[in-house]
Amino acid sequence: MSEPSEKSLERMRVYTQKYWEKTGTSPHPEKTVTDAVVTGLALHIDELGRPLCPCNFYPDKKAELERSREWVCACDEMKRYKYCHCLLFVTPDGLPITEYLPEDHEGRQIYGLVRDPTPGQGREARHKVGAE
C-alpha cells in the first residue's frame, strides 16, 4: 500500500482544518474516517497534482481531471450544496448535510434530511445551483 508524502499530507491537514472553520462543518467523530480521506487526497496530490476525491470511482483519474474539476476537493457538491459524500465535512454527529440537495439526490435517499447547523457559512458556489 503506497503512502503519501508528508508534504502533501500536511497540505491537506491544513486545508481541511481551514475548510471546517470556513464552512462551519466538523470532522467526522470517528477519526479513522477523516484520516483515511485526508490520506487519499494527499496521495492524489502526489499522483495527479490535485486532491481528487477518493470516494468516487474514476475509469481514468487523469482523464477525469482533464474533463472537469468537479471532484477536486472541495468538490462542486460541497461548494454548491454543502454536501460531502466522503464524510470529511459533516455535522458534529458525523452526518453529511443534505438540506440543500435536490430531493432526488442519492444523498437525500441515503441520509434523509440533515439540516445545516451553520447556514450562514459555506456554499460559496451556491449561485451555480440551477445555473448550468
Binding site: 480521506v37 487519499g40 477518493p54 470516494c55 470511482f57 459524500h85
Partner: peptide, 12 residues
C-alpha cells in the same frame, strides 16, 4: 462491496 482503501465511508 465495491470499495477503495482511502474512502472514509467505505471504512464505515
Amino acid at each position: 462491496d465495491l470499495w477503495a482503501t482511502w474512502c472514509g465511508p467505505c471504512q464505515m
